[in-house]
Design a protein around this nucleic acid. Structure first.
Lengths: 340, 340
DNA sequence: TTGTACGCGTTATCAC
DNA sequence: GTGATAACGCGTACAA
């Protein structure tokens, strides 16, 4: 195979101009059917393929969309990406992924890179927080459409897609109360991250709605991993009056707690109920299966993609700003159903 | 913010040529330090950012690499992608992902799309099999570097990265034999897929090495999901002489079997041992924890990326062909340790 | 050391 | 309906 064929090659072949070839290929109305057929025939003969790079340079649209997440192999993000790709591929976009590892400097560079690569938009689950959000804003101020999803930041000109974390926290907690739990603990991750804070607020409001006293000893801030969950549970169970339930903002933290509780022969759900957050695959396979709040990651991805598409399709230069909030669905499993 | 600044803008600003600006920006040696500083200053002042699209068109290299997998949100593929991104990002490449949903037509189109987008290489876990591999070869014959990983096809000019599925199957089976299991069943997925076939071969060879008779009643072909696993286990347990162990080519199939066995009060590992394949996250959380063969997906991704990099760095036009086989690591957990 | 001129592959704007 | 030409933004022989 020699070089790739260009429209010039096929123009030469037919003794016409590249312009005509271009028109024929693009179904331009002002072209005779005859020449179009000729061009098409020559194109397949020479195995011509359009060079999307040239089109991109010319048009200013790369048809690439950047997706920025902490880790692509976390189940949640992988599923969001699936949704994004599913929505965008049929529209002719390619999805470029990058990972921040939750490092802010990295995230900034990645976004700058993506902008330089002329992507048509960037969808980000950010690791920045309220404190340092301005650093990020500099980068994204003057460029392609942005959409934040899941871990979002609020700026006037940037759309967001989240689930209703507050409602998720509220429903989970209320469900535990309805099961007869009296002393419900909470695993938080980081106060400064809006989504965790919202889950926390939902928890507190559910307590207060049902007249259950809030006890700060029952609220623990921990990393989202099993080991931290074990330690947190241990700490809780050593309180003078240990809790009888946990609503955890993460499934992974809760997993450690469950393992610890089982190790000291606390029976779930008979003695102790638990509800997690994220609906990680493992929650349904455990013994007992674990109740959790589902985040519909695939739908979130699709929605983020749609918000992006809306933004570029309304090519009026009006900035569209939407804050889409998807429902959070409490999935009730064995871990939180007390037998009557 | 007006338009994006180009090298012409900064040339005008300084009353020099765009060529000079380009040289200054690219650390070209033939440039006076003075003008370079001037250019750099003007560049930051005008907030100049290189347009990677133009560079790509000019150079013929897009600095994009395509990754094609069945589903990005399957844990295994997500982890491979993580490895790929981790390896390629520092080298200045962006990773474009697409999903085939295991549809061959889709896969072909995706690859063609990627080629049109002028990616510098394509890494694929294919859904094609020996039967129809030629269809695919047409598409990838004359283009950018290809690397197959995990689900591979063999062509003279295409490199592959896999794990040692045969050894994995062998080790798993031998381990079960060593535990005293006498009648070891096997869950297969598809004979026509090389990797499953290799696991199966490893199983058979381990049996024969240890003088255990091969019994085709114990080999079941099933889809890789829980429901299918339940049914397969049920079928096995209804045999006149049921097996006392399963080596499954997938963790998901095995999961269903485990759930079924537990439901009929078969004790694992006391009465029945099991080993899966993939080392899915849930295998370590179950009760009992499940032994499984680890596929080192992140390493596989990195290796696939490295093979690609080697290929383009040895820019002699020699085609490099490598078949890299990574080790398969049997992870022994509770599900296959008989107490003595 | 810097400027000139051209090409990468395509599309759009003129003419004819 | 078709052709000539410019332009997208950049890099690079070649000249000076």
């Amino acid at each position: 195979m020699s070089k790739k064929a260009t429209i010039y090659d096929i123009a030469k072949e037919l003794n016409i101009t590249a312009a005509t070839v271009s028109r024929a290929l693009n179904n331009n109305p002002k072209i005779s059917e005859k020449t179009r057929d000729l061009v098409l025939a020559a194109a397949t003969k020479l195995n011509y393929k359009q060079n999307r790079l040239a089109v991109a340079l010319k048009s200013g649209k790369s048809n690439n969309v950047g997706v920025v997440v902490p880790f692509v192999n976390k189940n949640f993000f992988a599923s969001v990406i699936r949704g994004i790709e599913e929505e965008l591929y049929p529209k002719g976009f390619h999805v470029i992924i990058s990972q921040t590892y939750e490092e802010n400097d990295r995230e900034k560079k990645i976004i700058q890179n993506l902008i330089n690569a002329q992507v048509d938009g960037i969808l980000v689950s950010t690791s920045f927080t309220k404190e340092n959000k301005d650093q990020l804003h500099q980068v994204l101020k003057k460029s392609s459409p942005f959409v934040f999803f899941d871990r979002v930041l609020h700026f006037d000109d940037i759309s967001t897609v989240t689930i209703d974390d507050y409602q998720g926290g509220f429903d989970a907690t209320e469900h535990l109360i309805n099961q007869g739990c009296k002393r419900i603990a909470h695993f938080n991750v980081d106060q400064n991250i809006e989504l965790y804070n919202n889950r926390f607020k939902g928890y507190k409001d559910a307590l207060s709605k049902h007249g259950v006293a809030y006890n700060s000893d029952y609220v623990i801030t921990l990393k989202s991993d099993m080991e931290a969950g074990k330690q947190a549970a241990e700490k809780l169970m050593k309180l003078p009056l240990p809790p009888d339930a946990i609503f955890s903002s993460t499934d992974n933290g809760l997993l450690g707690a469950v393992k610890y509780l089982q190790s000291i022969a606390v029976r779930i759900p008979e003695d102790f109920c638990v509800v997690g957050f994220s609906n990680e695959p493992f929650t349904q396979f455990l013994e007992p299966s674990i109740s959790s709040v589902d985040q519909s990651p695939v739908e979130m991805g699709k929605m983020a993609a749609k918000v992006f598409l809306d933004q570029i399709e309304s090519n009026q230069n009006v900035k569209i700003h939407k804050d889409v909030v998807l429902p959070a669905k409490l999935i009730i499993r064995e871990s939180s159903i007390k037998h009557k």
